Simulated scan of single mutants.
Amino acid sequence: MKRVMRVGLVAIAAVITSAVAGVVVLSGGDVAFAWRVISHGESSTNDLHWKGHVTVAAGDPRSWPGTDRCNDVQRAAGGDLDSVLLAGGATQLVVIRDGQLVCQWAAPGHSIDELRPAFSISKTITALLLSRAVAAGQMSWDDPITKWIPELGDRDSRFARITLADLVDMRSGIEFQVVTRFPWFNQGAPRVYYASDLQSATIQDPRISSAPGVFTYNDWAPNLLGIAYQRATGNLMAGPGATALWADIGAQKPAWWLVDGHGFPWHESGFVATAPDFARVGELLLDDPNSDFAHRSAVALHTPVVSDESGAPPGYGSVPMGYGNGLWILHDTAHPAYAALGYHGQVMVVDPSTDTVVVRLGDSGYENVTSEPQIAAELERWAREM
Rank of each mutant, 00 (worst) to 15 (best):
P352L: 02
V20S: 00
A242M: 01
R207F: 07
A247G: 14
N71C: 12
A165N: 07
A160N: 09
A294T: 00
G8E: 02
A107I: 00
Y194F: 14
V214W: 10
P254G: 00
T233S: 09
A195E: 01
Y323L: 02
C103F: 00
V102N: 08
T303F: 11
L115W: 08
G188L: 01
S269H: 08
F119A: 11
D287Q: 15
G59H: 12
D47N: 08
S200N: 14
A376W: 03
G153P: 01
I162G: 04
Y193A: 06
D219P: 09
A232W: 06
A133G: 06
V192L: 12
W105S: 06
W328P: 04
G28N: 07
I12A: 09
S310D: 07
L198I: 06
L81W: 03
H344V: 05
F119E: 05
G213W: 08
D288E: 06
T356L: 11
Q252H: 14
T233H: 05
Y229N: 06
W141F: 08
G315E: 03
M348W: 10
D248W: 12
W246K: 12
E268N: 13
G89Y: 04
A13M: 11
V306T: 04
L361Y: 04
K2V: 05
W382F: 05
E42D: 07
G8I: 05
Y323P: 01
L129P: 03
D156M: 03
A195S: 12
S318Y: 11
G52R: 14
G239D: 15
Q346I: 10
L129W: 04
L330A: 06
Y338E: 03
W141E: 00
A90C: 04
Y194N: 06
L341E: 06
A136D: 14
F159N: 00
L341C: 10
